[in-house]
């Protein structure tokens, strides 16, 4: 996933096109060598993907099977992460939940990146040209943004019903303005930058400048945002679960598991909330660090 994104983000037209992919790879290797946290985060990301694909095969128990005799047991050799109120194995549930959570995160980000990408290009043009495009894009994202995001998410899920699809759509909607706004602000600063003026002097059209000169310069920030959004997507689903609007039971999902377990913290059954909480944290953590690492790789300034 990292390599193609990096290739897309490379500035075109100025450097020799041959061997760019290889160069990116070696650059990536250099970054990872220099930054152990990034290396670790890529490894973690791979692990998460692995769990998402093979989770059901890896889990030692049926994640949905209750066993009330073994309910609320602390971590042991039989149940590494302990069991929950209904005696379900938490390790199995955490593993199986990876797929659903990754699905929510990736789908919602893909959706908003695609939508935000379209609006982003318009946004770049808007930030670049000013005028009426600027106003329309600005007002639309202002309108969404002016809503308290979590309450908006709650409202949409409450109105549409609490299914995975609706959680994905909701998450994409509330993150949409972040993309357009960042692009606008960045483009606004850059429109009078030397390289933009230079490109214009050499006779490039405005759209071409927006796409080839400004967009690549903004992409890193968007990638940083994308990684953050993956995390927020899961956190958002967890928050919805906390107030009862999340994924339907008995499906295993980290957010719901933390919400269920949070009722048991004060009574000392810390493992119910802790392990899914840790998985949730690790995933969000990993998305953020991966974003950081990607940024380092694609940042044109560091490539020179």
């Amino acid at each position: 996933m990292s390599a193609p994104a990096a290739a897309d983000g490379a500035p075109s037209g100025q450097q020799r096109p041959k061997g760019r992919f290889a160069e990116t790879l070696s650059h990536a290797r250099h970054i990872i060598g220099e930054n152990p946290v990034t290396g670790l985060s890529f490894a973690l990301f791979a692990l998460l993907l692995l769990c998402a694909v093979f989770g059901p095969l890896l889990s030692p128990y049926d994640p949905l099977a209750s066993d009330t005799v073994a309910a609320l047991k602390p971590p042991s050799a039989h149940h590494w992460f302990g069991t929950d109120q209904l005696g379900r194995d938490i390790l199995s549930r955490v593993l199986v939940a990876t797929r659903l959570d990754m699905l929510i995160a990736i789908l919602s980000v893909a959706l908003v990146f695609f939508a935000g990408g379209l609006a982003g290009v318009a946004g770049v043009a808007a930030g670049f040209f000013g005028g009426w495009t600027d106003r329309i894009v600005g007002r639309v994202s202002d309108t969404i943004m002016a809503f308290p995001l979590f309450v908006l998410a709650m409202g949409i899920v409450a109105a549409l019903g609490n299914t995975v699809t609706n959680i994905v759509i909701t998450t994409a909607i509330i993150n949409f303005p972040l993309y357009t706004r960042i692009v606008r602000a960045e483009a606004n600063v850059r429109r009078n930058a030397g390289y933009v003026l230079a490109a214009r002097l050499t006779g490039n059209s405005d759209t071409r400048i927006a796409l080839t000169t400004i967009l690549p310069n903004i992409l890193p920030i968007m990638v940083v945002q994308m990684s953050l959004t993956m995390g927020y997507a899961i956190l958002n689903a967890a928050g919805l679960s906390f107030i009862g609007l999340g994924v339907r039971p008995p499906a295993a999902e980290w957010g719901i598991m933390v919400a269920e377990g949070s009722a048991f913290i004060v009574s000392g059954e810390w493992w119910i909330a802790l392990f899914p909480g840790l998985a949730l944290m690790l995933a969000v953590f990993c998305f953020n660090l991966v974003g950081d690492g990607l940024r380092d790789i694609v940042d044109p300034l560091r490539r020179t």
Binding site: V37, L235, A238
Partner: peptide, 17 residues
């Protein structure tokens, strides 16, 4: 990086509890 990222990776209700 690790510290601030860990912070934002926790659901607020969980941190609060």
């Amino acid at each position: 990086r690790v510290v601030v990222t860990a912070g934002v990776s926790l659901p607020v209700f969980f941190t609060g509890l």
